[in-house]
Amino acid sequence: MKAVEIMMEEHRNIRRMLVKMKKIANDMSLYQSEDMKDIVEFCHGYADEHHHMKEEKILFPEMLKCNYELFEGMINHVMLVEHDNGREHVRNMAALVNDYEEHKDERYLERLSFEMKAYCEVLKEHTEKEDECLYQFAENALSDNAKQRVDALSLEWESLNKERADHFVEVLHHIEKAY
């Protein structure tokens, strides 16, 4: 499925950003305000709004329609819980960046480091589970018609969000060069 190929490429981009986030989290002296804001926006805008929402609105519903009993636990009790966990870390990171910018208190950086590391761990494991298991289940279980629907809807999503997705890939390139 073309949609799965695109989602796996997005996972590779997300994991590339996680590498840089972990580097910064391990040495907060690298903290740069504008870069950190861009990193948080990448996590929110690309990993969640672009990638996770595509899964939640397109792929997961097709999988549940195909075989609810097989996929319900995997999707509702693992994947969606991990999406929500990631969102919580991103909200916390955004708040801590704002708090640090306002107060310049190093304790906010310590907490930010913790949130970044936790987010990195959650998203690394999550994307690996999807690449190695969930997407393979989808490829094997979905009917040809369901695969065509997923591909068509995913390609439409990509078309509508191309400029924004491209922006986030540029943010990734900037962060990779800077760190």
Rank of each mutant, 00 (worst) to 15 (best):
F71R: 01
L64P: 06
M28C: 11
D27V: 00
N26A: 13
K54D: 04
L18C: 13
K54S: 12
A47H: 02
Y68C: 14
L18E: 10
M36L: 05
H51P: 13
P61W: 08
M53V: 15
I39S: 06
D35N: 12
C43M: 11
F71M: 15
M63L: 12
E69P: 00
M53D: 14
K37L: 11
M21H: 00
Y46C: 05
L30Q: 15
D48H: 09
E56C: 09
R15V: 09
F60L: 07
M21A: 11
K22V: 12
E34G: 06
K65F: 05
S29A: 09
N26H: 09
E56K: 10
L64Q: 02
K65T: 12
K20P: 02
Q32S: 12
M28D: 05
Q32C: 13
E56H: 08
I58L: 02
K54I: 01
D35M: 10
K65W: 01
S33P: 00
H52P: 08
M63F: 05
F71Q: 04
N26V: 04
M53P: 01
E55H: 03
K23C: 13
M21R: 02
V19Q: 13
M21Y: 04
P61S: 07
R16W: 00
R16A: 12
K57N: 10
D48V: 11
I58R: 02
D35Q: 09
H52R: 02
L64R: 01
N67E: 14
M17P: 06
P61D: 13
K20D: 05
H44N: 05
F42N: 07
M17F: 04
V40G: 08
N26R: 11
L30T: 10
D38V: 01
M36F: 14
K65L: 13
D35F: 02
R15T: 12
H51C: 12
H51M: 11
C66W: 08
V40D: 05
Y31C: 10
M53Y: 09
H50P: 02
N26D: 10
L18S: 09
K22Y: 08
I39W: 01
V40I: 10
I39G: 05
E56D: 15
G45T: 07
N26G: 11
E49I: 10
E69N: 15
M17R: 04
M63C: 11
K23W: 01
Q32H: 15
Q32A: 15
V40H: 04
L70Y: 10
D48G: 07
K23M: 15
A25Y: 06
D27W: 01
K65V: 03
E62V: 08
I39A: 06
D27R: 09
H51L: 07
M17V: 09
M21V: 12
I39V: 09
F71W: 06
M28F: 06
E34C: 03
I39M: 14
L64D: 00
K65M: 13
E62S: 11
I58Q: 03
C43P: 02
K37N: 10
K22P: 01
N26T: 10
Y46A: 08
D35C: 08
E49H: 12
A47R: 04
D35E: 10
R15E: 04
M36P: 04
K23R: 11
Y68I: 14
Y31T: 07
S33F: 03
K23D: 13
F60Y: 15
V40C: 09
M28W: 07
F71D: 04
E62D: 04
I24M: 14
K54Y: 06
Y46F: 14
G45N: 04
